[in-house]
Computed example of a mutant assay.
Amino acid sequence: MTGSLAGLHILVTGGGSGIARAAAERYDRDGAKVTVLNRSAAGADSVHQTSGGRIQVIVGDATDPDVLRSAIDAASDEHGGLHHFTSGVGVFDNYSRVSELSVDELMAAADEVWRVNVRASLLAANLAAPALRSAGGSLTLTLSESAFNAIGGGVLYGTSKWALRGMVDHLAAELAPDIRVNGVAPGGTGGTRFGGLTSLGQTTTADKVSGRDERIAAGTLLGTTAMPQDHSGAYRFLADPVDARVVTGVVIRTDGGRRL
């Protein structure tokens, strides 16, 4: 298979479902050698099978340093270089209201949100930096419309995405000129399986909320509800070392023109 990303080695965390999976599959279609690290074995197997076996999958937790280190090694080329890393893991707070949680619930939920939504990306930058630097590679973080406005989630989720927005700027400065760092901020998206906070006993996913797709469409200038694949072009662009050669510290908002 050939394409604009032909031969590039790319690692995607959380790539067994949703937006991260769409990004991984887009990289694969454009010729990259893609590795997906996913906590769910079922999700990992699904993306592997759908790709015809081209996408290498590893089952494990992207917040675990040992697991992530092994995934980076597996995804890198024979010289130890990694051309691109997409951080796609995330957890949703199901619009939990901080003022209505007990102190114990708040502490547990905040720790979980920070560990998955923020610390995993910090860990990615820390552990992948040598391999990315070796290849002159790039890192893309997954934000949300919640990183710009008080929409799309509760305070816990929203503030974690605001933290990632700042992380893009600061990592871009720290890792320049060797590694480009950018982000994609999707708006509300249908067809996803975005898990809730286990610390609060949440098991529903964001796309199961009644009327959610209609509300998303009504709140955008384009009047549409995005699907995971609608965001994949932004990820592909940022991963491309030619098309995005001078792009760093940028967040692409794929939110359909969110009405403010």
Rank of each mutant, 00 (worst) to 15 (best):
M1T: 08
S87H: 08
P241A: 09
H48P: 05
A6S: 10
S134N: 06
T86R: 05
R215I: 06
A226S: 10
V116C: 03
G166H: 01
T204V: 12
N38E: 12
V34P: 02
N94G: 09
A172L: 13
V246W: 06
G166W: 00
L139S: 08
G7D: 11
R26A: 08
G191S: 07
V67K: 01
G195D: 04
G257C: 15
Y27G: 10
V98N: 15
Y235A: 15
A124Q: 05
D30S: 12
P65A: 09
G14K: 09
D61P: 00
E214N: 05
H79Q: 02
P130D: 14
L123E: 13
S87I: 08
R245G: 07
V116P: 15
R119D: 11
E78Q: 10
T192Q: 02
A44Q: 11
R97W: 08
R54K: 12
R115C: 13
I55G: 04
D73Q: 03
G137R: 03
R119V: 03
V242Q: 11
P228S: 10
I179H: 03
L139M: 01
H84N: 13
P65E: 06
G16I: 13
S70W: 03
A42P: 00
A124C: 15
G233V: 03
M1K: 07
W162S: 09
V155T: 08
M227S: 15
L127E: 00
Q49I: 07
M167R: 07
G158C: 13
D111R: 04
E145A: 06
A172E: 09
A110V: 12
I72S: 08
V57H: 00
V242A: 13
T248F: 06
F237T: 10
R21N: 08
L132D: 00
M167I: 02
A75N: 12
R193T: 07
K161I: 10
E100Y: 11
L106Y: 15
G16A: 14
L123G: 11
K33V: 09
D61Q: 00
G154C: 00
V103I: 14
G60R: 06
H231L: 04
Y157I: 00
R180K: 04
A6R: 14
R193E: 11
G31Y: 06
T220Q: 06
R115N: 06
S4Y: 06
H170A: 10
S199G: 13
A41G: 11
A109V: 11
L156T: 01
